[in-house]
Each structure stands twice: as C-alpha cells, then as structure tokens.
C-alpha cells in the first residue's frame, strides 16, 4: 500500500470485558436511522388504523384499569381523576414495556442479518428504544388533550421531563440489552418476557399510588427506577404529590448501573451471537 493513511485492521479473538465502541456506532448512525424507520414503517404497514394503535393500546388499558381499579376496587388516586392518574403512569410504563419486549427480541428476530453481515449489533436494541419514542410522543399528545379535558395545569417542574425520560430510556435500554444478549443463547427469555412485564406492572405504581406503600418499604420499592419516573410524571402533570426527588435519584443511579452493565454484558456476548443465533 502506497498510501500510509490506509486503515489497518486486526482480527483476533477478543478477551474479557470491553468498552462499547461508540465511535463505530456513530459511523453507523445512518444504519440506526434506517433501522428506526424500518421498525416504525413495518409495524404499521397494511393496517387501517396505522399509527393510531400507539394511542389505542395504552388508552384502552387505562380505561379498563379505570373501571376495575378506579370504580370497582375504589383504589386511591391521590385525589386526581383515576383515568388521568393511571394514564400519566401508563405513558412511561408503555414505553418501558414495549421497548423491553422489542429490544429483548431484536437480536433473535434479526438473526438472519447477524449471521450475514457485520455491523455493530448494539444498533438493534438501540433502534427499538428509538422507534418506541414515536409511540411515546403520540401518547403524550393524548395526555395533553386529557389534561385540557380535566382542566388540569402542569406544574413548572415539567421542565424536568427530559431527566425523567433519560432515566426511562436508560433503564429500558439497559435491561433490553441484557435480555437481548441472553435471548440469543437462551430462548426462554422470549417466553418469559411477557410474563415478566406483567409482574413488573404491579411492582410499579401504575394502577395504584406509591403513597399506599408503607413508608419503611418505600426505599426498597424505589429501587425500581420506574417508580421515580412514574411518580415524577404524576407530580409534574397532576400535582398530586411533591416531586419525589429522592426516588428519582435512586432510580437514576440504578438505571445508570443497569445501563453500563448492560453495555458491557452485551459487548461480551456479542462475539458469540453469530455462532449461536
């Protein structure tokens, strides 16, 4: 080679725990973009209601919760109308559960790509996390409409929404990375995930208020980052409780830990994906 600038690449067996190659990810940013577009377009292709499914799913779940838990069981909603009380929680919760499910299956369902071409595999769970943000945004518009309907005004603390969203994305994606890497080798993950999401729904304050948890258990309860995120959403939009900064902090730390561990674990497992997929 007469051009000394030519890149030299060495292929060797890798050892131990390694950092994610972020620069490589940035080089493949266009692929990420098209994966997100593909995820969105493919999902709503050939359906009559198209993107409105992003509203229908959380809205109907909320309506059922309102009837069952709000009217029949008369669960406390901290003074807010039960419908918007549970919808404000359903917004981050839907994002979490959809991202987790999609990200966890992303490697297995794209195994044909993994075995045929090299690209940073992390693109797959990341694109799931990005594609679900569209659903989140659409459902968010519905939340605003509901706020108008019930005559509620969000508090000034709504400026902290991006912080809550970052915690929500990091936690969903971090867990998604771990589960997707596991799912390549253990297909049990695919069967377990629906079940897991269902259990987690009741471990987070979606249908009830965190204030009904005894105070002495509240720290342990808040180790689930979704607790801080959901209560934070309620606080800023419905002003039912003061902003739960202690829970948000705990949840933030946990989600950073999960995200970093997820990234390392994913990288470590990455090399075997093509062999066992």
């Amino acid at each position: 080679m007469n051009t000394p600038a030519t890149k030299i690449q060495v292929i060797e067996p890798s050892k131990g725990w390694q950092l994610i190659d972020w620069r490589e990810l940035i080089r493949y940013q266009d692929l990420l973009y098209y994966m997100v577009v593909r995820g969105i377009k493919a999902r709503y292709a050939q359906s009559i209601l198209g993107i409105s499914w992003a509203i229908i799913q959380p809205l109907f779940t909320t309506l059922i919760f309102t009837i069952v838990f709000g009217n029949v069981a008369q669960i406390s909603s901290d003074g807010a109308p039960y419908l918007i009380f549970s919808f404000a929680a359903m917004l981050p919760w839907s994002y979490f559960s959809n991202t987790l499910t999609e990200a966890a299956n992303s490697l297995v369902s794209n195994s044909n790509m993994i075995t045929k071409v090299y690209f940073p595999r992390l693109i797959l769970p990341i694109s799931a996390a990005f594609a679900k943000l569209l659903d989140f945004a659409i459902a968010f518009l519905l939340l605003i409409a509901l706020l108008f309907y019930f005559g509620l005004t969000p508090s000034w603390e709504v400026v902290f929404l991006p912080i809550l969203m970052i915690i929500m994305i990091m936690f969903s994606l971090g867990l998604g990375m771990i589960l997707s890497a596991m799912a390549v080798q253990y297909r049990d993950v695919k069967h377990a995930i629906g079940f897991l999401v269902q259990i987690l729904l009741y471990a987070a304050p979606v249908v009830y208020a965190s204030s009904s948890i005894p105070v002495k258990y509240q720290f342990w309860y808040s180790l689930n980052p979704m607790v801080g995120v959901i209560e934070g959403f309620r606080s800023m939009f419905l002003s039912t409780q003061p902003m739960p900064w202690d829970w948000i902090l705990t949840g933030g730390v946990i989600s950073v830990i999960i995200f970093v561990f997820g990234a390392f674990y994913f990288k470590r497992m990455e090399k075997i994906f093509a062999d066992v997929a």
């Binding site: 080679m1 690449q9 060495v10 060797e12």
Partner: peptide, 14 residues
Amino acid sequence: RITEPSSGKITIQG
C-alpha cells in the same frame, strides 16, 4: 467480522 476466530490473527489493510 461476523464471527470471531478461536485463535490466530488476520491483518487487513484497507
């Protein structure tokens, strides 16, 4: 680079 070698080395220029 779809899969890793178990041992050995490949050096590629370009």
